[in-house]
Amino acid sequence: MVIGIDGPELRAFTQAAAQALDQKPAQTMLTSGIHAAYQEGEARLAAIEGVEPVAHGLDATGPTQACAALFVTDAAVFLKKPELEDEVFGPASTIVRCKDERELLAVAEHFAGQLTATIAMDRDDVQLAKKLVPILERKAGRLLVNGFPTGVEVCHAMVHGGPFPATADSRVTSVGSTSIDRFLRPVCYQDFPAELLPQALADDNPLGLWRRRDGQIVNA
């Protein structure tokens, strides 16, 4: 989804995006099921009253190839049509035109959970961005400025998750050092004799692990 305040800049962006997509070759999707779901989702978008198709990529030349698609609608339509928020996994986007700043913030508040949210801005947009950020912090797991949410780097700072329905549990991530929390279940061993403890908890630490003892990080 692309959301912006209507005006010459957004209309120039829409025109440029449409021209680029019109020449975009179709790309092969991973499975026939994913391809079929994409085609169904694109057809649903095109059938919604108040949604205008503005661009379509070059025709497919092989099986399971998806053609890029671009749609435009207004904020008033978006706020009334919950089906516009349904994910269409594939090369389709919808541009939502807002009349003013107030409507833009209303659309941002309306969104359900997302993996990412990007603010495209320059210095003149700082004050509006300050109003958007507190909303987006509650809506998405990763916030970007003037970037694209690809290239999910596996690092300590990465979060690839977000509020439902982006992920089932927004407290954990599927990428990054804290993703281990997603795949572990804690077990407490209380009053265990030493011979019954797992190696990772043995008093002499045979595995040489960094561990927390009485709140302190130690490796002995």
Rank of each mutant, 00 (worst) to 15 (best):
G50A: 03
L115M: 12
Q190P: 00
E85Q: 09
A36F: 04
L21C: 06
L30S: 13
F78W: 15
R213S: 03
D6M: 00
D125E: 12
C98G: 00
D122N: 14
A66M: 08
I135V: 15
C67G: 14
M29K: 10
A26H: 08
G141W: 04
I95Q: 07
L84P: 03
D125P: 07
A168D: 15
V187P: 02
V2S: 13
E42G: 10
F71E: 06
T31C: 07
G62F: 00
R211S: 03
A12L: 14
A106W: 01
A166H: 05
I3Q: 09
E103R: 05
G147I: 04
I3L: 12
H160G: 13
A26I: 07
G4R: 14
K130T: 11
L30R: 12
E195V: 08
D169T: 13
V154P: 13
Q190A: 08
D191W: 02
L58D: 04
D181Y: 06
L70D: 00
P82T: 07
P186T: 03
P63A: 12
L197Y: 05
V172N: 10
T94D: 02
N146M: 05
L104I: 04
D204N: 12
Q23Y: 01
F183G: 01
P198Y: 02
V133D: 09
F183N: 02
G147P: 02
V2W: 07
A17Q: 11
C98F: 01
A18H: 06
M1Y: 13
G147F: 07
P186N: 01
K24W: 14
L207T: 05
E49L: 04
A75Q: 06
P134S: 10
S179I: 00
H56L: 12
M1R: 13
L209Y: 01
S170L: 10
L84H: 00
A75N: 04
P193C: 06
K24N: 11
I180C: 05
G90E: 00
R185G: 09
A66T: 05
D203H: 07
I119W: 02
L209E: 07
K130S: 12
P91Y: 00
E109L: 04
N205S: 06
A194P: 03
T167F: 09
K81D: 08
L144V: 09
D100W: 00
R102T: 15
E52R: 05
G162D: 09
P193K: 11
A60G: 09
T14C: 12
Q216Y: 05
D22G: 10
D181P: 00
A12V: 10
L209K: 07
H110P: 03
L21W: 11
T14N: 12
Y38F: 07
D125Q: 09
M158Q: 14
R213G: 01
P193V: 08
A47V: 06
T173H: 10
A16P: 13
L196S: 08
R182K: 15
R185Q: 14
D86G: 09
E83I: 11
E137G: 10
